[in-house]
């Protein structure tokens, strides 16, 4: 067991334990904060996979953007009188069965399939340059469409969130 394996298991443990807390914790605030560790762990996994740009983007966008939005959502939709914000669960037993079946079949398929694996360690270099070139050449159209989608989504979110005032006037 070399250092790479130990680091992989370390990050995998962080991801799975904190994702478990997100899913099973009764306190919404605990879920929101352990989602932070899940995102950091996934970023570590990306770095192990030689995806440095995606790892940084993951931390900037997920931790800096999406998690902030979610925490604000938690605070705006609960009466935060005390720190304990509980939430219930529903039909846990069928859900647990469904999820166990999904996990089992996915793991079975992943384990049984004979994947074509490129042997050896690829040359480790920064991916930012080549990713930028790809976005400006191969993926130019999806890139532009994604920018329009983001613009529309943000304008739409602002419209939806303050709809009542503009409609009543």
């Amino acid at each position: 067991m070399n250092l790479f394996d130990i680091i992989f298991y370390f990050f995998a443990l962080i991801v799975l334990v904190s994702a478990g807390i997100v899913v099973f914790s009764r306190n919404i605030i605990h879920s929101a904060f352990s989602l932070l560790f899940t995102f950091f762990g996934v970023a570590g996994i990306y770095i192990l996979l030689n995806a440095d740009f995606i790892a940084v983007a993951q931390i900037l966008i997920y931790v800096g953007g999406i998690l902030m939005l979610l925490v604000f959502g938690v605070m705006l939709t609960n009466k935060v009188v005390n720190v304990e914000i509980k939430t219930g669960t529903m039909h846990t037993l069928p859900a647990a069965l469904l999820t166990a079946m999904t996990a089992g079949s996915l793991c079975g398929i992943f384990y049984a399939t004979d994947w074509t694996i490129v042997e050896g360690i690829p040359e480790i270099k920064s991916t930012t340059n080549s990713l930028g070139e790809m976005f400006m050449t191969t993926y130019l159209l999806p890139f532009e469409v994604a920018s329009v989608v983001l613009l529309v989504a943000l304008i739409g979110a602002a419209m939806i969130a303050r709809r009542d005032k503009s409609l009543q006037q």
């Binding site: 899913v23 939430t87 999820t99």
Partner: peptide, 19 residues
């Protein structure tokens, strides 16, 4: 696969929309 299943479990069982 395990992370996906945990997320699926959260989506199916949680009552709070944010979760």
């Amino acid at each position: 696969a395990i992370l996906f299943s945990l997320g699926l479990y959260g989506v199916v069982t949680r009552k709070n929309a944010i979760l």
